[in-house]
Amino acid sequence: MSTPAPGAVMRGAIDLSSLRSRPDAAAPAGPGTPAAGGASAPRLVFDATDADFGQVLELSKTVPVVVDLWAEWCGPCKQLSPVLEKLIAEFAGRLVLAKVDVDANPQLAQSFRAQSIPLVVALVAGQPVQLFTGAVPEQQVREVFHQLLELAANHGVTGTVPQGDAPSDAAEPALPPLHQEAFDAIERGDYDAAAVAYEKALAENPRDEDARAGFGQVRLLARVQHLDLAAARAAAAAAPTDVTAQFDVADLDLAGGHVEDAFDRLLDLFAALPSADRAPVRERLLEQFGIVGDGDPRVIRARGRLASLLF
């Protein structure tokens, strides 16, 4: 895969104007934390919201801001976020990272046109810059960040922020050995090995919900890594009741953040099939529910429709 590169500054392509003038008094603490004398010291990694994004835009006039649009249910997001945080620390204050939960911040998701996540963009002097979509290997992200710094320098944005608030690896609790084995395998792109590690963890502790969720996520990533979206959609359109073809598109939709589209496709397939052929579709739906999380409203709605189809 070729290395993603920062795109042109997208003036007019994304409208952030409604986020620029929000009153700071009503906004939760965002990119700054109180410092001595009442000043605000920017953090290297922070959560950004619809309410406080005006502060993020202002910060981008001093230092390039990488924006990570993610969601709790998104497996590839959980794979990418630690890579982004590690590299932000590596760049020693020349970049900062704003994390945006798209479910909690729909205005930002809409403004950045986050049709698929993880979506990573940057802000340079208040203007958005396309970086990449999807879970990208660490070395490629590092190269993109170097190119982003060059682009920012061309726009006169060359500041840095203090590093006292940089993430500390020592402060993070160690993963259980099998979880660490799975994470290392994911870093290598070896999803089969990660699945084996999670299976071992579940054999040791069947109530390990993190291992169960991780197992579903890496199985999903393994299935979609070699699929072509256009070809998969064409095959599914040509064969509405072909289970394999519909599974491929549902998996691609889920991996890309189109959760309801994935669920609806599988539920429509379940409804169209004879009762004797429905079991694999139900199993795939339950697996996708586990990846997104049982408490998610979209899962609750889909479970309700599945129950009505069953009974």
Rank of each mutant, 00 (worst) to 15 (best):
M1P: 13
S2D: 14
P6G: 14
V9K: 15
S18R: 14
R20C: 10
R20F: 10
S21G: 08
S21I: 04
A25K: 06
A29S: 04
G32Q: 01
T33E: 02
A41N: 01
F46M: 03
D47I: 00
D50K: 07
A51Q: 07
D52P: 12
G54I: 11
Q55V: 03
S60N: 09
T62I: 11
V67Y: 10
L69A: 13
L69H: 14
W70A: 05
I88M: 03
V96E: 00
L97M: 03
A98D: 06
Q110P: 05
R113D: 11
L119P: 05
V121S: 14
G126F: 07
T133F: 14
E138S: 12
E138V: 13
Q140F: 14
V157T: 03
D165E: 08
D165C: 02
D169I: 09
P173G: 11
P177K: 11
L178R: 08
H179P: 08
D184L: 13
I186K: 05
A193F: 04
L202D: 00
L202N: 01
V218R: 00
V224Y: 00
L227F: 01
A232F: 01
T244A: 10
A245G: 03
D248I: 00
V249E: 03
V249W: 01
D251P: 01
D251F: 00
L252A: 03
A255Y: 02
G257Y: 04
F263L: 15
R265I: 02
D268S: 09
L273I: 07
V281A: 07
R284H: 07
G290T: 02
G293K: 02
G295M: 13
G295N: 15
R298A: 14
I300R: 15
I300P: 11
S308D: 10
F311M: 08
